[in-house]
Design a protein around this nucleic acid. Structure first.
Length: 566
DNA sequence: GCCGTTTTCGGCCCGACTGTTTTCAGTCG
C-alpha cells in the first residue's frame, strides 16, 4: 500500500476518534499521517522495528501500519467504519462544518456524504437541528458548491496571485508593511489558501478595501483585525491586521507549519514564556515579537528559513545548530534544460538567449526533444548538426551569455537512447529522460534509468520520477539505487522547475543529498517566459535542504564544463 | 496514542470570528 493511502487511513481514523470525542488520540494519528506523507521511502518496505523509529509512530500505530502492509486491511479501522460509515473528507471540506456538526448531522438525519447533506438542506431539515438556524442551513448549502470543487492549487498559480494582492495593498497610503505568510511563504508545492499580514493604522479602511477587491467572489468573514474572502476560482484568502511590535511573531505564526508552531509554543511554556501571534511574553511583558529573527534569538536557535519549517525535528535541528546553509534565490548562474521552435517550444534560440540574459544567466543549454517522442517537430541527426552550427553563429553574435549545445534524449522502454553516441559526444550537455512506459515494473523502470546514467555522454536525468502534481503519481523507482548510480557515474539529477512537476520533489532531494548526489535546477522552459520558473525549482531545492554546493548550476561556466567531462 | 534536559505518568498551542445557547460552542488557521 502506498504511503499516501496509509496516511489517508490514519487521517480517517483521527476523524472517527474525533467524532467519538476521544481526546488526544486524533492528534497522534494525524501526526503519524503527516510523517507518512513526508517520507521519501515506501513505508511498505519497513518492518515494525523500523517504523517505531519514525517520529509520531510508536508501538500501536506501527502495528497497524504493519497490518496494512501485510494484509492490505486494518481490522481496527474497518470495525470503526462499520459503526460509522461517513465520508469525512468531503463533509469536512464544507466551510463551517467540523467534527461536531458531522456528528450531529449523522446522528439526527443519518447524513453520510455531500449528496445527502445537500438533499436535507434543500428540504430545510438542517435548520431545525439544535444549534442550527435558517442562516446556517443557507451557508451550508452555499458552501457545498465550493466543497465539490475544492482542492489545493499549484504554487506556480498561487504565488503570483498572492504577490499581486500584496503589491496592491502595498500601494495604499495607510499600509506600513504587508507580507504573504502561510504555506506560500514556505513554498509548498501545493497551496490551500492565501494568508496575508498587514501593518496599518487604519485597519477599517484596509479591510474594506480587501473585501471589495475585484477578485473577490464572496466574503466569508469580516472582523476588525481579520477577514476571509473567497476569490474567483474558489481560492480562500485571509487578511490579518497586526500591530507592528507583533509583526514578527504574527509572521512566524501564520507561516507555520502548524507542527512547528505547536513545538515552538511548547518550548515557550517550558521556559516560562508564552508565544502567540502577538509576541513572545514573559508574564505580561513582551520580550520579542517585532521580527522573526528576534524571536529565534530569544530561543537561542538558528534562524529557520520558511522553506524548512515543517516538522518538530526541524525545530530540534535549529536548536542544535544543525540547519543547512540553503542555496539562495540568486545563486544560479544558468539553466540547462529548455526547448525552442526546433521541437515543441514557442520561441527561437535567439529570443530565448536574449531573455535569459535579462535574467543575468551566464549560460543556458538548448535541449530540444529527439525522435523518440511523438511530436510534430523533433531533432534528428541532420537537424542536430544544423542547430549546432546555428548556436555557434548566435554565440558569436551575442555578448554576455553562452549558449550550450544540448538535447533532451528519450530513454525508451528498454533503456536505450534515441540518439547515437557518436552524435552525443559532440554536445555540451546531454539530458536524458523517460516519457513513456510509466507502468513498467519497479525493476524495469529503475534499470532503464540506470542504463541511461551509465552512458558516458549522459550528464543529467531530467524529471527523474515523472510525477505530475495532481495528475499522475511518480513511477515506481528504486530511488536508493538511482542515487548510488548517480554518484558512481557523475550523472546529475534534475530538480525540474515546472510548477506541475517539481521533480525531484523536496523529500527526495533531501535523501539524494544524503547519498552525496549533485543536482541541477532547470526550468524545462517551452517559452522564454518560463525561464522565470527557476524560482520554483530553487524553492523546492531549499525545501529539500540543498546548499549551494549541492547544485551544479551555481557554478561558473568553466567549472560547470569541468563537471561534464567530455 | 505519543512523548520525555522539569515527566515512563501526566501532559498534549493559542486566539479570532460567527451565530446565537445572553456567556459560549464550534470552526478555522
Amino acid at each position: 500500500m502506498k504511503n499516501m493511502e496509509i496516511a489517508q487511513i490514519m487521517e480517517e481514523i483521527a476523524d472517527l476518534l474525533e467524532i467519538k470525542e476521544i481526546p488526544f488520540k486524533p492528534i497522534a494519528y494525524r501526526r503519524a499521517a503527516e510523517t507518512l506523507k513526508s517520507l521519501s521511502e515506501p513505508v511498505d518496505g519497513l518492518n515494525q522495528k523500523q517504523l517505531i523509529k519514525l517520529p509520531g509512530i510508536s508501538k500501536n500505530i506501527a502495528k497497524k501500519i504493519d497490518e496494512l502492509n501485510k494484509t492490505g486491511h486494518l481490522i481496527y479501522f474497518e470495525e470503526m467504519k462499520k459503526d460509522c460509515p461517513i465520508e469525512f473528507e468531503s463533509l469536512l471540506s464544507v466551510e463551517g462544518v467540523g467534527p461536531k456538526t458531522v456528528k450531529l448531522l449523522y446522528q439526527s438525519l443519518d447524513i453520510k456524504n455531500l449528496d445527502e447533506l445537500e438533499e436535507q438542506a434543500k428540504h430545510h431539515r438542517i435548520r431545525r437541528l439544535k444549534g442550527m438556524s435558517e442562516k446556517k442551513e443557507a451557508n451550508i448549502l452555499e458552501n457545498i458548491k465550493y466543497a465539490r470543487k475544492t482542492g489545493r492549487k499549484l504554487l506556480g498559480q498561487m504565488l503570483p496571485l498572492a504577490n499581486e494582492i500584496k503589491n496592491d495593498l502595498k500601494k495604499l497610503d495607510k499600509v506600513a508593511d504587508v507580507e504573504v505568510a502561510g504555506s506560500i511563504r514556505r513554498r509548498k508545492e501545493t497551496i490551500g489558501d492565501i494568508d496575508i499580514l498587514v501593518i496599518t493604522d487604519d485597519p477599517q479602511e484596509i479591510m474594506e478595501y480587501f473585501i471589495n477587491m475585484d477578485k473577490v467572489d464572496r466574503v466569508i468573514a469580516r472582523g476588525p483585525t481579520k477577514s476571509t474572502v473567497r476569490l474567483r476560482g474558489n481560492i480562500s484568502c485571509d487578511l490579518r491586521e497586526v500591530p507592528s511590535e507583533s509583526f514578527g511573531s504574527a509572521l512566524l505564526y501564520f507561516t507555520g507549519s502548524k507542527e512547528v508552531n505547536v513545538e515552538l509554543r511548547k518550548i515557550a511554556i517550558k521556559n516560562g514564556w508564552k508565544l502567540s501571534e502577538y509576541g513572545l511574553f514573559k508574564g505580561d511583558e513582551i520580550i520579542a515579537g517585532q521580527t522573526e529573527e528576534e524571536i529565534f534569538r530569544k530561543y537561542r536557535m538558528e534562524y529557520m528559513e520558511p522553506e524548512i519549517r515543517e516538522t518538530k525535528e526541524d525545530v530540534e535541528k535549529a536548536i542544535h545548530d544543525r540547519l543547512p546553509n540553503l542555496i539562495g534565490y540568486s545563486d544560479l548562474k544558468g539553466d540547462l534544460q529548455m526547448h525552442t521552435k526546433w521541437s515543441d517550444g514557442k520561441d527561437t534560440i535567439k529570443d530565448i538567449a536574449n531573455y535569459a540574459m535579462g535574467l543575468n544567466h551566464e549560460y543556458i543549454a538548448i535541449t530540444d526533444h529527439t525522435s523518440g517522442l511523438p511530436l510534430k517537430d523533433v531533432m534528428d541527426e541532420e537537424k542536430i548538426k544544423i542547430q549546432m552550427k546555428e548556436i555557434d553563429k548566435i554565440n558569436e553574435e551575442i555578448e554576455g551569455i553562452t549558449i550550450l549545445k544540448g538535447l533532451e534524449v528519450n530513454i525508451d522502454s528498454h533503456g536505450k537512447l534515441d540518439v547515437k553516441d557518436n552524435v552525443l559526444k559532440d554536445l555540451d550537455v546531454v539530458v536524458a529522460s523517460v516519457h513513456s512506459g510509466f507502468r513498467q515494473s519497479k525493476d524495469q523502470l529503475t534499470n532503464r534509468i540506470i542504463s541511461a546514467m551509465e552512458n558516458e555522454y549522459v550528464n543529467i536525468i531530467a524529471h527523474p520520477t515523472g510525477r505530475k502534481i495532481q495528475q499522475r503519481d511518480e513511477y515506481d523507482l528504486d530511488l536508493p539505487r538511482i542515487f548510488e548510480t548517480s554518484v558512481e557515474t557523475d550523472t546529475f539529477l534534475e530538480v525540474n522547475s515546472q510548477p506541475v512537476r517539481l521533480d525531484l520533489r523536496d523529500v527526495h532531494i533531501k535523501k539524494a543529498i544524503k547519498y552525496g548526489c549533485k543536482l541541477v535546477i532547470n526550468t524545462d522552459a517551452h517559452t522564454k517566459e518560463h525561464l522565470r520558473d527557476l524560482e520554483y525549482g530553487i524553492a523546492t531545492a531549499r525545501r529539500g535542504w540543498s546548499e549551494k554546493s549541492d547544485i551544479i548550476n551555481t557554478s561558473t561556466l568553466k567549472e560547470l564544463l569541468g563537471f561534464f567531462n567530455h
